[in-house]
Simulated assay, not measured.
Amino acid sequence: MSITSKALVLTGALFCSSGFSNTDARTEFSQTYHAYQRAVENSEYEKIEQFAKLAYEQGKAVFGEKSQNAANLAINYAKALSHHDSKEALVVLNEAIDTLTVLQGKYSTDLIDPFILKVELLLPNQDLTAREYVGFAIDIAQHHSNHLLESKIYFEAAKLFNRAHDYSRVKSYLNHADDINKKYLPKDAVHRLTVDLWVAELLSARKQHKEAVAKLNDVIAVFDERLDFDHPIELTAHSRLVGLYEKMGMSEQATKHCLMIAKMTPWHDDVEQTPLYRKEPEYPQRALKARAQGWVDLEFTITPEGFVEDISVLDKQHGPLFVKNTIKALKQWRYAPKFEDGEAVSAKSTVRMEFKLSR
């Protein structure tokens, strides 16, 4: 992810520079770079790495090895390498960081994205210096008194450390972002609302369900009071509230959000409906002892309130072993009901529940 939203820009003025090599080299580089851009647009990962490397090599000859454009091309190449060769990616990335630091100084905002990429590359190896590079990026944002940028860095760091399962660091970074947002950003700023969702998820994971509910209701209130359009953030908040209220045994409150989601999303009869809250069935002891695996296909009615009723078994593998626990679990699921002419109505749906043993 790019926090600063900056990219290499090749302008006509650059190509007219007397410091460039011959016209053929410039033309060849331009073709390669545009091929790289197309590969990125089409998510062609092998081509992305191929053309990122070639553009980097050609770009050093065209722009100069220690130029800003060569550094940006190095960052592109490091990103392409990051998926399978973090060691080489770090070598290339460090060259770019050194070049940008010399050219622009240690407080250049152009250093933020490469610092965050370096964090991403270091974390899988549990390299504690990853935290230092978060700090370097934060120092830059604070130097420029850019509160939004500072919050975005903390948020991006939280997501990266979440992938590394360092949850104490996730909590710290999210709390920093949340504090900045409350102090400096308007309530309806998309970034602030996005962070609010993550904070609510963190609270829920720590069993602070009441606090998570309050946070999510605050998000929804922003849309009700300030924004006159539906947004995925609002939809996510409603969905998570369904699950939280069900965990708290407050089905009536969950129903309100089931209905709101139904109003925001179209119903498709030919598509299996996705539950807003699901309780996984317990693996039957008899099946465990027998090392048996199987599945159960069920048809059921989703009520106007989003509950499950009228469950029937359509088909099953391994007889009745799994049926009882499957039905027991399905009765606790919640859905967004079907709407017709502005009213919630009952509707049929199906689901297959699979029972698989881990190897």
Rank of each mutant, 00 (worst) to 15 (best):
S145Y: 13
T23Q: 02
L10P: 03
H144Q: 08
P232Y: 10
E246G: 10
V351M: 11
P186A: 12
W295A: 08
P124L: 02
N175V: 00
L123K: 04
E309I: 03
L160P: 00
H143N: 11
L298F: 05
I311N: 11
Y283L: 03
L149I: 06
Q208W: 02
A287P: 08
Y33D: 09
A347R: 07
L117S: 00
E343R: 03
K87E: 15
I3T: 10
L197D: 03
V102A: 03
S86Y: 13
L235T: 15
K316V: 05
V345M: 01
L321E: 05
V242E: 13
A157S: 10
E225G: 00
A347Q: 14
V199P: 03
A96C: 01
L149M: 10
G135Y: 06
L216W: 06
Q50H: 14
V102M: 03
N22D: 07
D196N: 10
A254R: 11
T326A: 04
L148C: 00
L122C: 12
V351D: 07
R226M: 11
I327S: 07
A61Y: 09
S2G: 14
Q293L: 00
E88V: 15
S82K: 15
L117V: 01
L259W: 04
A177E: 09
A212G: 12
L103P: 07
E211S: 14
R286C: 06
K247W: 04
K279Q: 15
S358Y: 01
A205I: 01
D178T: 11
P266S: 10
R226W: 01
K106P: 05
V40A: 10
Q68V: 08
L321V: 11
E132G: 03
F115C: 01
A287F: 05
V296L: 01
Y335R: 05
A141N: 02
S18E: 09
E211P: 11
P266I: 14
A336P: 00
K207F: 13
H238M: 11
T303K: 02
F136T: 09
T236S: 10
E120S: 01
M260R: 15
R278M: 09
A61M: 11
